[in-house]
Design a protein around this nucleic acid. Structure first.
Lengths: 144, 144
DNA sequence: TATAAATAGGATAAATTTGTCCGAAATAAG
DNA sequence: CTTATTTCGGACAAATTTATCCTATTTATA
C-alpha cells in the first residue's frame, strides 16, 4: 500500500506530534527508537517532511523536530503521504494505465474508484492530532 | 497499490479470459502486445499464475495459455493478486507493524480496516468473466 | 522420427527502493 | 569566540523489484 519510507514517515510524524504536545523537540535517534526504524534512513525521510512543511526542524544544539501545536489538528495524514509517496495511491489507475477515467476506463476502474475515494477521504480527514492522542492514551502503538 | 508484476498479471489474466471465451490460446508475445508490457517479464508472471492454478498452460506447438471457460466466473481477482503479491495488501498492517489487531492496534488500524475490507470484498467478488466482458464489449481497456 | 513451435526455468542485468556513512552548516551555551 | 550538539545533504552500499536472454523441455504435425 504505502512504501516503507512512507510508513516510517507516518509513524515519525505521529510520534513527533505526541512530543510536540508537551513542548518537546525530538531527534532522529529518539524517533527511530520509538518507531523501530533505521535511524539514518528515518533522518532522510524527516528531511522530506521538513521540505514539504509537514514538520519543522530546529538546527543546532537543543534542536530537533517539532510540529506547531496549533497546527496538529489541521495537518492530515494526506499531507504526510503526499510528501513521501505522492498522490498516486488515491489517484492514478489501479492497473497502471497512463490515462484511466470514465471515458477510457481500465477494467477495474469503477470498482477501484470507490475504494480509492474512501482511502482519499480517510487520509484527508484524519489529523495527526487524532492519531497522536490515540498513542498518548495508550490505545494505539507505534511499535510492537 | 499493486506491484508492477501484479498489474501485468491482472491485465494478462483478463486478456487470456477474453480469448478463452472464443476457445483461443494465447502466448506471451500476443499478451505482452495487448497489455503493453515487457514480454519476457510477462512470461515469468504467467509461470506464477500457472503454478498457482489461475491459468492453464499447454506446452509445445499450438500451445499457449488459457482458462477453462467454465471457471471464468469462479476465478476472482483475489486469486490473481494472491498468486503474485500475496494477501498483505488486504491483510497486514497499513503501517507495517508485525502484529496489529484490535488488541494492539497501530494508530490507523480502525480507519484502515474499513478500506482494507472493502478492497478484500471487491477482489473476492469480482470475477475474471465480468472483467473480460467489459473489455470484449469495448467498455473497458487493457492499454491506453 | 524429424522438425518447428511453444512453455519452463535458470542466469544475469538494470532500475528502484531501502539503508549507511561522513563531512558541512547552523546554533545554543559557556 | 569556542565548543558541543544537531540538522542538512551528498556519496555510497545493499536489497529488492523489474526486465532481459538463452537453453532445455515439451508436443503437434508432416
Amino acid at each position: 500500500m504505502f512504501s516503507k519510507a512512507c510508513e516510517y514517515g507516518i509513524k515519525a510524524a505521529i510520534f513527533i506530534a505526541t512530543q510536540s504536545y508537551e513542548g518537546k523537540r525530538v531527534g532522529p535517534k529518539a524517533i527511530a527508537k520509538e518507531i523501530d526504524s533505521p535511524q539514518a534512513f528515518t533522518a532522510k525521510i524527516l528531511q522530506a517532511l521538513v521540505k514539504e512543511g509537514v514538520v519543522t526542524s530546529v538546527k543546532g544544539a537543543y534542536g530537533g523536530f517539532e510540529i506547531d501545536r496549533g497546527l496538529l489538528s489541521q495537518i492530515k495524514l494526506a499531507a504526510v503521504v503526499n510528501a513521501i509517496d505522492g498522490d498516486h495511491i488515491y489517484k492514478g489507475c489501479g492497473l497502471g494505465l497512463h490515462t484511466c477515467d470514465a471515458n477510457q476506463p481500465c477494467p477495474v476502474h469503477n470498482k477501484f474508484e470507490v475504494i480509492r475515494n474512501d482511502l482519499k477521504n480517510m487520509l484527508e480527514q484524519t489529523s495527526l492530532e487524532e492519531l497522536a492522542l490515540g498513542v498518548k492514551s495508550g490505545a494505539a502503538f507505534l511499535r510492537v
